[in-house]
Design a binder for these strands. Structure first.
Length: 423
RNA sequence: GGGUGGGUGGCAGAGUGGUUGAAUGCACCGGUCUUGAAAACCGGCGGGCGUGUAAGCGUCUCGGGGGUUCGAAUCCCUCCCCACCCGCCA
């Protein structure tokens, strides 16, 4: 959420950021609306001031026993009252309109974000490990999983429909092991606090992180008006909503392993096979709440935490900086980590590490006291650390053997009861 | 699902129609004292909006909205939220 005062002072920058996201300029319209609002506020204040002064005089007149004078002033105030109400109503209408427009705007882009209109223009920052070469044609994860009888898409479809999966036996355990492994890593080595938080949240929470009002079709709403979280970023970030934090307590670092639920409206036909794009998937999320000056540093730290997962699992990946046209609306800068999938012969997103600046903090009204005791909005960041479902895909595909079995990487064996291979 | 009680400043907690934006305590900031710190004492201390270079001034704000009244944190209506008890269920 933007501060209209900031837009006034930075109109050009604001519009150019919108343009880079492929949207038309909005500052002129917003400023005009705010001008109208201000005019009403001033008129309203003047009318209120007059009313208050006269009301006071009534009290004085009555105290002095001058009832005639009191009544003449009362008549005067009576006339003023309706005027005050009209101003108030007009002011509220304009303020609501302005806030609604502001709430739909995407975040300002960080200057380093590369220009582009689609993922094709994302910029690769670095690559870790060369894609493994296979002496046979590597299969896709679902072929491996189905052949082993450990991934069952048909059963899932009978129970829940398409875009669900049933994992069985060691494959189910593998998913659990991956989650445990990641949580242990982040809590023991990366300074995160593990959190178990609601998966079902109020609209206000989704508004806070920016999924509402603009992206309501991407999440599932319950019959009682709550929402299934599309990511635990929502629960973790909203942990600090409507709070005034002490600067000394920052940064806060939270992590959580949760299911995530996405309607995938608009992605019909994309990634329909396998468990790459599901309505439900497990993800370890990291959220950081910090002071503005540490924000960028924390993003790089978090990116490193996510990378550490893949490094320990020895899965090839690359880090890309998302271009302006591919970035999420709430974010200022995003790095994606893409794992190599031999079966697909492609890199696919497995983590996304983003910086929101004060965009979410404003929507949640989360502030902290700085060194001078002044209130300021915190900065928030989030990143997958990492997507468990996709990590399982990457693991199965990268560690597949010609006989259809899957080797368990060293780092994960302690979480698999020492098991060295599946199948 | 049934019933009851509540939502006041960073926190706790007074306040049921008239200089109350709001007592008091804690926290916080400044100062005195101290070698330093603590304690004690003195002083300061909500937020939003508008206006102004600023100091300041104005206005709104005691969960949201509406109403009664010359005047509302205090009365009425309505919505939201929270807590507790009973029932049901994990």
């Amino acid at each position: 959420m933007f501060d209209i005062k900031w837009i006034r002072a930075n109109a050009e920058l604001f519009d150019s950021s919108l343009k880079r996201r492929g949207q038309p300029p909005a500052s002129a319209d917003l400023i005009a609306l705010d001008d109208a609002r201000k005019a009403k506020v001033t008129a309203m204040n003047e009318a209120q001031e007059k009313r208050n002064a006269l009301s006071k005089q009534i009290g004085q007149a009555k105290a002095a026993g001058d009832n005639a004078r009191a009544e003449s002033i009362m008549a005067e105030v009576g006339a003023l009252k309706s005027a005050v109400q009209e101003f108030e109503e007009a002011e509220r209408t304009l303020t609501d309109e302005l806030n609604t427009k502001l709430s739909f705007l995407p975040n300002l882009l960080h200057p380093e974000v590369p220009d582009g209109t689609s993922e094709n223009e994302n910029v690769t920052i670095r690559t870790h490990l060369e894609p493994k070469t296979f002496s046979f044609k590597p299969k896709e994860h679902y072929e491996i999983g189905e052949t082993l009888g450990l991934m069952d898409f048909e059963a899932a479809a009978r129970i829940a429909g398409s875009r669900f999966v049933v994992l069985r036996g060691q494959m189910a355990r593998l998913e659990r092991a991956l989650g445990q492994f990641m949580l242990d890593l982040h809590t023991r080595e990366h300074g995160f606090t593990e959190v178990s938080a609601p998966l079902l949240v109020r609209s206000e929470a989704l508004f806070g992180t920016g999924q509402l009002p603009k992206f309501s079709e991407e999440a599932f709403e319950t019959t009682d008006g709550r929402w299934l979280i599309p990511t635990s970023e929502v629960s973790l970030t909203n942990l600090v909503r409507e709070q005034i934090l002490s600067g000394e307590d920052l940064p806060l670092r939270f992590t959580s392993l949760t299911p995530c639920f996405r309607s995938e409206a608009g992605s019909a036909g994309r990634d329909t096979r396998g468990m790459l794009r599901q309505h439900q998937f497990a993800k370890v999320e990291m959220v950081v709440v910090t002071t503005p000056d540490r924000s960028e540093e924390e993003q790089h730290h978090m990116l490193g935490c996510a990378e550490a997962v893949l490094r320990k699992l020895e899965i090839p990946y690359r880090v890309v900086a998302l271009c302006s046209g591919d970035m999420g609306a709430s974010m200022q800068r995003t790095y994606d980590i893409e794992a190599w999938l031999p079966g697909q012969n492609a890199y696919r997103e497995i983590s996304s590490v983003s910086m929101a600046g004060d965009f979410q903090a404003r929507r949640m009204n989360t502030r902290y006291r700085n060194g001078e005791g002044k209130l300021d909005f915190v900065h928030t960041l989030n990143g997958s650390g990492i997507a468990v479902g996709r990590a399982l895909i990457a693991l199965v595909e990268n560690y597949q053997n010609e006989d259809g079995s899957v080797t368990i990487p060293e780092a994960l064996r302690p979480f698999m009861g020492g098991l060295e291979r599946i199948g």
